[in-house]
Deep mutational scan, measured.
Amino acid sequence: TKKDTKLYCICKTPYDESKFYIGCDRCQNWYHGRCVGILQSEAELIDEYVCPQCQST
Rank of each mutant, 00 (worst) to 15 (best):
K6I: 11
R26I: 14
K19I: 10
K12F: 06
R26K: 08
C54M: 02
D25G: 12
Y21V: 07
S18D: 12
C51V: 02
G23Q: 11
C54F: 00
G33A: 13
P14R: 08
K6P: 14
Y15F: 13
L39H: 04
S56W: 03
Q28G: 12
L45V: 13
C9N: 00
D4Y: 08
K12H: 11
E44V: 09
C9S: 01
Y49M: 04
H32I: 00
S56K: 12
S41L: 07
C9G: 02
L7I: 08
Y8F: 12
Q55G: 07
E48A: 13
L7F: 10
R34M: 06
L7Q: 14
Q40P: 07
S18A: 07
D47W: 05
E42F: 06
K12V: 01
R34F: 06
T1Y: 11
K3C: 02
C11A: 00
Q53R: 11
C27Y: 01
S56A: 14
C11L: 01
K3V: 13
G33W: 04
K6W: 03
L39R: 12
Y15Q: 02
A43M: 09
D25R: 14
G37V: 02
K6Q: 12
I22W: 03
I38P: 04
V50G: 02
Y31A: 02
T5R: 08
G23E: 08
K6L: 11
P14V: 06
S56G: 07
R34E: 13
Y31G: 01
D16C: 04
Y15W: 09
I10P: 04
S18V: 02
Y8G: 14
Q40Y: 05
T57V: 12
Y8M: 14
C51D: 02
F20T: 13
C24E: 02
N29F: 05
C9D: 01
T57Y: 05
Q40M: 06
E17Q: 11
E44G: 13
R34I: 08
Y15D: 04
P14K: 10
I22H: 02
E17A: 12
R34H: 14
Y8P: 05
E42S: 07
D4G: 08
N29V: 11
P14L: 07
L39G: 09
L39P: 15
C35Y: 01
L7C: 11
D16S: 05
L7N: 14
H32R: 01
Q55E: 14
T13G: 03
P52L: 09
N29G: 11
K3W: 03
L45A: 10
T57F: 04
P52H: 11
T57I: 10
Y15E: 04
L7A: 13
Q28N: 09
E44R: 12
R34A: 14
K19G: 06
T57M: 03
W30C: 09
D25W: 08
C54D: 01
K3F: 12
D16E: 12
L39E: 15
Y31S: 02
G33C: 15
G37K: 13
C24D: 02
C35F: 00
D47A: 13
E17N: 08
D47P: 10
Y21L: 06
G23A: 10
K19P: 03
E17D: 13
C11I: 00
F20K: 07
E44M: 10
P52I: 10
I46L: 12
E44L: 10
L7K: 07
I22R: 04
I46P: 12
D47S: 12
R26T: 15
S18C: 05
V36D: 02
Y49L: 05
S56F: 11
I10W: 04
G23T: 13
C54L: 02
D16Y: 02
D25S: 15
D4E: 13
S41W: 07
Y31L: 06
K19A: 11
N29Y: 04
I38S: 03
I10S: 04
R26A: 10
R26F: 06
D4R: 04
Q28W: 06
E44A: 13
W30L: 15
Y15R: 08
R26L: 11
E44Q: 10
C11K: 01
D4P: 10
Q40F: 07
W30G: 10
Q40S: 12
G23H: 14
K6H: 12
Y8N: 14
R26H: 15
D4K: 13
G33L: 15
H32L: 00
K19Q: 10
S18H: 10
E44S: 12
N29A: 15
F20S: 10
K3R: 09
K19T: 06
D16L: 03
T57S: 15
L7G: 13
I10L: 13
T13L: 05
I38V: 10
Q40L: 05
L39W: 05
V50L: 14
H32S: 02
F20E: 13
C51N: 01
E17H: 08
Y49E: 03
T5N: 14
D16V: 05
S41N: 14
H32E: 00
S41K: 13
K3G: 09
D25A: 13
K3P: 06
Y15C: 03
Y31C: 07
E42L: 04
R34T: 11
L39V: 05
Q28K: 15
G37D: 04
G33S: 07
I22T: 04
T13R: 07
P14N: 07
S18G: 10
D47T: 12
C24T: 00
L45S: 11
I38K: 06
T13F: 04
F20R: 09
C54W: 02
Y15H: 10
Y21I: 06
T13V: 04
R26S: 14
P14F: 09
L45Y: 08
I10R: 05
G23P: 05
Y31K: 02
D47Y: 08
W30F: 15
Q40I: 04
L45I: 09
K12C: 10
Y15P: 05
D25F: 08
Y21R: 08
A43H: 14
Y15I: 11
K6V: 08
Y21G: 04
C51K: 02
E44D: 14
K19L: 11
A43Q: 13
E48T: 13
R34P: 09
